[in-house]
Design a binder for these strands. Structure first.
Lengths: 154, 154
DNA sequence: GGTGAAAACATCCAAGA
DNA sequence: TCTTGGATGTTTTCACC
């Protein structure tokens, strides 16, 4: 689990695996110019160093019937610890919440949510309000996905 | 590329692959209760039906030196087609922009961006403004990632 | 950092339910 | 029609160079 020196080969492996997480070591070998066993070893080292956190299939929204995305900005009723903790617990439990960030600015938190339809979104907001720790919510429904989950680049 | 009937086995395969995109067909076999060859066939069918859009390694932010996330709300100067098209072209080109959504509400677009630091964020905003199609920007810097890229559930 | 071999794996196909 | 198990080529990974 030690932090390895990360060279250009590693960077290329990271970039390639981010674009295609099922590349074989043999395919990586051709693409980066190292032997397959070397790619295997480097990949495992990157995983152990927690630079690769996981591998995931990206699903079409309709695969899970969550074709509606909404961005929700939340302001808590107070900035006390107990309200923040209660809210964060709900955020973690709610499977419709994909991203949750504590942010600077007018809102305290910004959420990205994926639901089936407006009725589900309404129910989700009801559950959030029911926690009695939310002062104000501003919701923006996504009309068009211009770009989504694009790869990180250096 | 036809749309298959999606049964509980398929749903389980989708869920498992979303959580671990490198599961082997043999591992899937144990987890869903079908033979490995059957899992292989179903997985390929789900890929062909575009319900699985791809497989990706999830990287640690520090792997690509983009440890700062900011949410940016953009309002265009006008709602004319030429401004929208110019803005969307920039959004697609800018690799720091991870998500870009056209939304309802005060803003026209909501962006999620990943950059190295405040200086890079400042430069990014400069490039956005330089397009002369932006009327107003509201930026919220992420202080804490409560939850990120969690799996879609039905 | 590469090689080669053993074990594990993916996928195709024939045949059964 | 949907599923299975075995055959075959591929891939991973490890000891060794």
């Amino acid at each position: 689990m030690k932090m390895p020196e990360i060279d250009d080969f590693d960077l290329k492996i990271l970039t390639l695996l981010q674009a295609n997480g099922r590349l074989t070591n043999q395919e990586l070998s051709d693409l980066v110019g190292l032997s397959a066993s070397q790619c295997s070893r480097r990949r495992i080292a990157l995983e152990n160093a927690q630079l690769i956190l996981g591998y995931h299939a990206r699903l079409a929204p309709q695969a899970m019937n969550v074709e509606m995305v909404a961005m929700i900005e939340v302001r808590l009723v107070s900035h006390g610890v107990e309200h923040a903790e209660r809210f964060q617990r709900i955020v973690v439990e709610e499977s419709a919440i994909i991203d949750a960030y504590k942010t600077t600015g007018d809102a305290d938190y910004t959420l990205k949510t994926a639901v089936a339809d407006l009725a589900s979104l309404n129910q989700l907001m009801g559950r959030l309000f029911a926690s009695n720790c939310i002062g104000h919510i501003k919701t923006a429904v996504v009309l068009e996905r211009i770009k989504e989950n694009s790869v990180l680049t250096h």
